[in-house]
């Protein structure tokens, strides 16, 4: 995995730095005439949890939507600048569905699709052509276990996923995202609709997942970023104010007064 990257760096074929999973260059997003994000440049390293904090309407969600090219399906959404995943511009993909398959997304509000729990998790593998039940069974069980949901649903895999409790649905959503075996996992304020106990469990899962995937975690909870993120970016009103090692950020080593005020809870 990492070896791959090293090879690329040595051949120098690609201008991207291979230890960087995600590179964003001068990204601006607007909806019609309304600007949502202006000129954001940042990198996300492989196998790190990258936190993004900021108050409402700071462009965090728009940022995530640009990463897996949801702008294509969002009327009026206009994206400028570059987004490189593993060194390849997301807009250079001829088959954007293949790109999306490599990027898992978890929404603020849990979305259990109105099909059985099993079908929810088996959907992505099925979409990529896996039909054998034995293979699907293994994937479903593995993903549900990694999302800490298996024990709760193993006896009702064939009941509707959309009728689970909110916390369960959120873990189902995570299991679904994991079933894609994503290189990059995007989480958008996942704890909004989830109780604190479940939140802590999901946070533990994310720490485990860091070993095998890269995570971008958008959160409105500053402390959550502190607990989980290796590095954290602060977004404010469509601007990326600063990116820093999370420890530094919370130890007061910030360059911008606004970041300090937000982190200390003076606004937000």
């Amino acid at each position: 995995m990492v070896e791959h990257g090293a090879e690329n760096a040595s051949t120098g074929e690609n201008r991207a730095n291979p230890t960087r999973m995600l590179e964003v260059r001068n990204l601006s997003i607007s909806y019609g005439s309304k600007s949502a994000l202006r000129d954001v440049t940042l990198d996300v390293r492989e196998n790190e949890i990258f936190g993004i904090i900021g108050p409402a309407n700071s462009g965090k969600t728009s940022f995530l939507r640009a990463l897996n090219r949801m702008d294509v399906f969002t009327p009026g959404m206009n994206v400028e600048g570059e987004v490189l995943v593993s060194g390849k511009d997301v807009r250079s993909w001829r088959n954007l569905y293949a790109l999306r398959r490599r990027i898992g997304v978890v929404f603020p509000l849990p979305v259990g699709l109105p099909m059985s729990v099993y079908d929810n998790v088996a959907l992505a593998p099925r979409l990529s052509g896996i039909k054998k039940k034995a293979v699907l069974d293994v994937i479903v069980e593995k993903c549900l276990q990694r999302a800490a949901l298996w024990d709760e649903v193993k006896d009702r895999l064939h009941s509707l996923g959309s009728l689970l409790s909110g916390g369960q649905q959120q873990r189902l959503t995570i299991a679904r995202a994991l079933s894609q075996d994503p290189d990059l996992l995007l989480l958008d304020e996942f704890s909004i609709a989830v109780d604190p106990v479940t939140t802590m469990r999901i946070e533990d899962i994310l720490k485990e997942l860091r070993k095998e995937t890269t995570i971008v975690l958008v959160t409105n909870l500053v402390q959550q970023a502190r607990r989980l993120a290796d590095r954290t970016a602060f977004f404010l009103m469509g601007e990326c104010v600063e990116v820093a090692e999370t420890e530094d950020l919370f130890a007061g080593g910030v360059q911008d007064q606004r970041t300090r005020e937000y982190v200390e809870g003076r606004f937000g």
Binding site: M1, K88, W93, A98, E212
Partner: peptide, 18 residues
Amino acid sequence: MRASPADQTILDRRNLDW
């Protein structure tokens, strides 16, 4: 699991679903 640029070219083919 991580795809190298070479793998990406394979991934990026337009398949039947497309």
